[in-house]
Design a protein around this nucleic acid. Structure first.
Lengths: 252, 252
DNA sequence: CGCTTATTTGAGAGAAGTCAAGTACGGTGG
DNA sequence: CCACCGTACTTGACTTCTCTCAAATAAGCG
């Protein structure tokens, strides 16, 4: 493992611990430029992981892994945004999640991937042979626990999404989504608070929320007209009244 | 740990491994009467777990844990059926899953439960103090791995449910549900194949599928009239044409 | 057996979908 | 640098699926 002139740990692996990065202000240690693992592992342990990982970078619209392919790799996303999706035979699509730097994917699979992962911006990932990384979980229980932790967190947010998909109206769905994306944008550290950067298309938003493109677009317009948001182009939203958005999101 | 006259392992813990119990015919070793852990642990290890677990049995409609309560326990369901649900402030409810013997719950939480677990039949569970069981995961890595495995499986089925909720029509949803329940019924071993025992109410089915009671009821009627199912009372369905149900469920 | 609760059925309303057209955006090449 | 093209996004008109409200029927329980 190399150490940069500034003493920064340089590693292919990127893990953002929730304790460390989910606080209000921008997190210096976890900023996009700091490609390193926070908290859980020491340098030597990260070194061990670097040995079994390889860089895997892709451009916008490229597929990282496809539903049905042999699930050989576990991925760690370092930079960019990825969408996970599932399809019905007739082409209807559900996006089950968007991934951001620090996220893992490729784990919740047996033999084959049960979803498709695509880059919606240029992405940098590192990937591990699944056999090798599960070995490491044994050697480095802290890593295994951390990944387990992230999996249960993901399961929780999947439950939230089920509530959204099954029971929320179109406007409630969009408000929930905007608040979610504002959180994610905050972690990037490159935008003022209460702003959301939306790298994905309206079609992606629709397929994430269980709506059509047209309905999503209409809801954007409605929120803007009501003065709750301001659209700076299609991919940048200013949340002018986050409290109101929150109330709508929770159906209050 | 006690051993019964027949030499059967008697333990409070019940774990059904997928390798063992997801096959076609009824599984002798995992039948409801065999309250024991298959495969993963030996007797001594199960003994260790029994020491830190306590029986926790409840009647129909009782709450096992409530959204927002301190998440002190991890539960293992031995007998009966449990529903997990989340609510919006105005009372809209989403059931995120039904649990059957062998399932764990109470894990995917940090400090407080993020869902409510209720008995929809009389249930027998054993529960563990979360602190103590996570300790055991360290002592018995096989157990930790097994629970991790179950969590990733649950995450996968949460993704399937997101596809259902976001993209399937009412009839596709109900067909998917009937096939799912037929699978679960098969594991009970007390019904012929292609039958589904539905312990939950129509309202529960509706809240699981993101529909209303009325729509669920109408879809049942429609499937019965089309000759794809036969209703033996509201809680027992015979799947007379499983292939057709499957085609509808997948939107083909 | 009568009461309560669950389920089914019907009629009408509404939220989101579909189809279609127009506008804005982004990249490419002249 | 600007014009052009293709794609993405928005807007409009209309349809439809599911929901809502209401009532009837069936099932479960003391």
């Amino acid at each position: 493992m190399k150490t940069s002139p500034t003493g920064e740990i340089r590693s292919k692996l990127r893990v953002i611990t929730s304790e460390h990065c989910n606080h209000k202000s921008a997190c210096e240690k976890c900023s996009v430029r700091h490609i390193a693992m926070c908290n859980v592992l020491d340098e030597e342990e990260i070194n061990l992981l670097d040995d079994i990982s390889t860089d895997f970078n892709r451009d916008t619209k490229q597929i990282l892994c496809a539903e049905g392919d042999p699930a050989d790799y576990l991925f760690n996303l370092q930079e960019g945004t990825v969408r996970l999706s599932k399809m019905l035979p007739d082409g209807r699509r559900q996006i089950t999640g968007f991934l951001f730097p620090g996220d893992f994917f490729g784990l919740a699979c047996k033999d084959v991937y049960t979803y498709t992962a695509e880059a919606i911006t240029p992405v940098k990932t590192c990937r591990f042979k699944r056999g090798k990384i599960t070995e490491k979980f044994r050697e480095l229980p802290k890593l295994g626990e951390r990944v387990f932790d992230m999996t249960t967190t993901e399961l929780q947010s999947a439950h939230d999404q089920m509530l959204l998909l099954g029971r929320k109206s179109a406007s409630e769905k969009l408000c929930s989504f905007l608040l979610y994306m504002a959180e994610k944008t905050k972690l990037l550290g490159t935008y003022p608070v209460n702003q959301a950067y939306l790298p994905m298309s309206r079609a992606d938003v629709a397929d994430f929320l269980g709506l059509t493109v047209e309905t999503v677009s209409r809801q954007f317009t409605k929120l803007a007209q009501a003065g709750l948001i301001r659209l700076e182009g299609a991919h940048h939203v200013i949340l002018t009244d986050p409290e109101a958005l929150h109330d709508i999101a929770e159906g209050e």
